[in-house]
Design a protein around this nucleic acid. Sequence first.
DNA 1: CTTGGTTTTTAATAATTATTAAACTAAGTC
DNA 2: GACTTAGTTTAATAATTATTAAAAACCAAG
Lengths: 348, 348
Amino acid sequence: MPRPKKVSQTQLAKQLGISQALVSLALNGRSTGINPDTYKRIWDHAVGVGYLPKGMRVDSTPDSARVKQIGFILRAPLRLYIPSTYFGHVQHGLHHALEARGYRAVFLGAEDELSPEKLGQIFHPSHHVGGVAVLGEVAQPFMAELTRLTRRVVAISARYHGLCHSVLGNEPQALIEVVRHLHALGHRRIGWLGGNATLGRHDARLAALRQALKTHDLSLDPRYLTVVAEADRAEGGEAIHALLPHAKRRDFPTAFVTYNTQMAYGASLALQREGWKVPGDISLASADVSRLSVEGALRITGAGTSPDKLGEAAARLVLGESMPDEGYADLVLPAPLVIGNSTGPVRK
Amino acid sequence: MPRPKKVSQTQLAKQLGISQALVSLALNGRSTGINPDTYKRIWDHAVGVGYLPKGMRVDSTPDSARVKQIGFILRAPLRLYIPSTYFGHVQHGLHHALEARGYRAVFLGAEDELSPEKLGQIFHPSHHVGGVAVLGEVAQPFMAELTRLTRRVVAISARYHGLCHSVLGNEPQALIEVVRHLHALGHRRIGWLGGNATLGRHDARLAALRQALKTHDLSLDPRYLTVVAEADRAEGGEAIHALLPHAKRRDFPTAFVTYNTQMAYGASLALQREGWKVPGDISLASADVSRLSVEGALRITGAGTSPDKLGEAAARLVLGESMPDEGYADLVLPAPLVIGNSTGPVRK
DNA sequence: CTTGGTTTTTAATAATTATTAAACTAAGTC
DNA sequence: GACTTAGTTTAATAATTATTAAAAACCAAG
């Protein structure tokens, strides 16, 4: 709902075809002697056109006086019920960092559930949402609309140049680290188990892998590159299963890089079930990190930014900490290598 | 922050020992030419004495314009980053039902993250948390503490007799429906693929299965009963794999009931990979329902309560709708059979 | 059509808030 | 002491909002 400029009760009255006296009475809660339908019509219209009285600009309050809610929005087509350990960790980091500062994270909806009208309602100043974190990459028009309604917007794992702040992991670095690690272990034939086939993130990770291989004068063989629709453990198993029929070939890879730790874990289980040893026969390394990198008997080697840290950094940004006085900050967090036990030297 | 009566900018100015002009400028965000300390002092004082401008009484808005918060808590050891499509759906239902009523769901933390001190802070009256939904079964002392702090507590998928409201699915009915369905298809040898081994819910579902089989004069053979640690697709595959070595036996089951749809789905993929046909060779049915029951090429037959509906019902309860004037309500929602294509007649 | 009750408007004006140029004040520098 | 600068006040007035009694309009029922 656009709010081009201040609108007065006199203008509201003209727009509604009623008297300013009635507008004032309704907006101040007078109910006796006012038709309830008229009352509601007045309120809906006033909120709809963004009416606020003179006297106070709510968005000018010093931070300490603000009601402490920060909204978060999921990119389409995510839903609360679609498992995503990645964004679950982001939310976890966001929740705790906000909580430590006396704020609460409030789910506003998913990108494709939020019409401009709905966004306008959410960000009406009387609702006191102090800022928004957007989890994942949303459509540019959506982001433009959002930043028009509130200036406190932080994009997580996406960047919108000149529109808002952003926090990302250094994903190219992750692939560089993983490839360097595998190369140092002697691996010269490396395959790819990709997931979340429709996402730009998949393509970006694949491109970064190709680039990182190139710096070692290596390349991906299309026969040993597969991409599945989602990216959970079961799909990691499916992905390696699709390639195992070719395992007798002399050029079969000695290591695979996977889209995420979940897929590496699933692939590892599937390989072991088929009699392969990980990392003795095949090494598996992942383009991100998670609990699976550090917990349990099988710990996936990988590189990436802790998504908890993304959430924490986003919380700090949305609250205005370490923010430039003007313009927008793009934070790129490091993506260090985490060595587990899923990678080992090339088998002789 | 009490608001005994209207205070005007002129009065603010007198109280602060400054001019009304400066008050107006500061409250409207004018920063150039105003000392930042003065600016903040004005705002703090204005908010402190409850100043609001004329023109609109926010607390008189029809319901549609008010923001209200309902907290939700996850049972231990869940975290936001531990995938649970079940509780994700519950949250989804809760979020939408609350949103439709002008409320927002706010994550308060997981059971084992919330000390009594922390709970006390959360439920301080100034924080406007209007009630709590508890997702899953928490420790009795925790629930007792929670209900001491606020009376608006709803337990989801758990019951605390005499302590709070609750909403559950009729899980015994689900198993009755599933067994009846399989029996009608001719199945007389039925196995169990259990998950979430450490949860009371698993044990309850298993017990309900045994009971439902008993009414058909059937029983579970321990050789065809397996339980895995978690309950995702990959683990469904593992569970059936563990039993397949016995498939040549004459008494191998013709159907398996699984802990949830995820496991049934994963088991189905694993069976197909081994050359079995589902449901031609083995039928799979699940003790709950989800999107996997109704979407896609493979649709899992199962019975259960839609977790979205649990969330919606909880929202209504926590807001006081259809609630008894005193005492506590325990809602048990029906668990209907949803027939997919994972079950079929016994193979001759 | 008349009547009674409810809702809304009118007109006026009081109260509140916004805005602005000029004047004032305090602090720092030379 | 003179000068400069930043912050604030003053005085005036325009704009916005609140309030109220009386009048007008509307609607349903008889």
